[in-house]
Design a binder for these strands. Structure first.
Lengths: 179, 179
DNA sequence: TCACCTTATATCTTTTTGATATATATTATT
DNA sequence: AATAATATATATCAAAAAGATATAAGGTGA
């Protein structure tokens, strides 16, 4: 069987919700997947094209008045199978993080203490804001989508974001003290 | 002043330690930066070339017998300035994570409960192994490099890794229970 | 001694990102 | 009312980064 990258599977998964066009998929990603999987248009459009070429999805082109034309994609049985199959595989690699703060702190010897402290305080503040964002989304889901079939799983991923962010905030505090 | 990306600054920083060639830099990254900043050869070599072209570093080519020739890079004053200047700037973006497990769990509705449980158990196990790796590196630094000027900062970044990993492990446990 | 693995160095291809393009609709400002 | 700015909707393209492959030598085990 052909091999696809994880972003392709993410798009397959999103097509099981009612997002059909590249634009809609991008919206969905930005709203729901953003904290653990970002995808740009430059990936989405070529991927959709490939899905169609390889029979994992079908397209329908809609000519809309006043708007650019819109291509709607629908999963085929084969597409659903490929998604299911991927879901069954255990993960191949641990998550990768790129952390600019750690990178700067790593070379902290070339900074003054004040600079390092400022760096950490600023980071902490941004993390706290992020945490609040998570809480907001969580509340939104709990309020409006409680009976959505996917809601349960969405909340799990948010909980992950909250816990990890919380740990990072605690690290900031501890490191500020130790500096 | 020219703009550079963060990997360039990472390489500038590494050149302040005694790593001089592309190969050595890669080793250093894999050993010390890996958990928050991965860089491939495909970035390192072009970056070194550019550093030289723009006067941030100088090169010396050594012909070695029995081995490919080796280019050694040395930071110039300008290079040191550019690094210092970057260290002073606050962070521009929060760290980005790509988490395959969350991606799969997000589409958990298409899985059986057993599959999700297995996914989480497997993830948890990998995280625990990672945690142990951090502890190992931490011990190594504490034992051999306590008086290295950079050691303190290296330990901070490791502490971050440990705390965040710990939080992720706790999330696995909680989610397994809730499923 | 041959096959395989590791070290050391570097390049090339594919993926991904980030920026730009186009066209219309809507809202805000002078 | 005219103009400007912003948002929606769609898509492509150039540049950066990751991952795979290349080369050359040395070491190791059967």
């Amino acid at each position: 069987m052909q091999k696809y990258n994880d972003s392709t599977y993410a798009i397959l998964g999103i097509l099981t919700t009612n997002c059909r066009s590249g634009y809609e998929i991008k919206q969905f990603i930005d709203n729901s997947l953003n904290h653990f999987w970002k995808i740009s248009y430059g990936q989405i459009y070529p991927t959709l094209k490939r899905l169609e070429e390889e029979g994992l999805a079908t397209v329908q082109t809609l000519v809309q008045e006043g708007k650019p034309e819109r291509k709607e994609y629908f999963l085929t049985e084969k597409g659903k199978d490929v998604l299911k199959n991927w879901l069954e595989q255990p993960l191949t690699q641990l998550p990768v993080e790129r952390n600019e703060v750690l990178l700067k702190l790593f070379f902290g010897r070339h900074q003054t203490k004040e600079q390092s402290l400022y760096l950490l305080a600023d980071y902490k503040q941004k993390l706290e804001k992020l945490y609040q964002t998570y809480e907001g989304i969580e509340e939104g889901i709990s309020r409006h989508n409680t009976n959505h079939q996917d809601a349960k799983y969405w909340l799990f991923t948010l909980d992950y974001g909250k816990r990890v962010t919380e740990a990072a905030i605690a690290w900031c505090e501890a490191t500020i003290k130790e500096l």
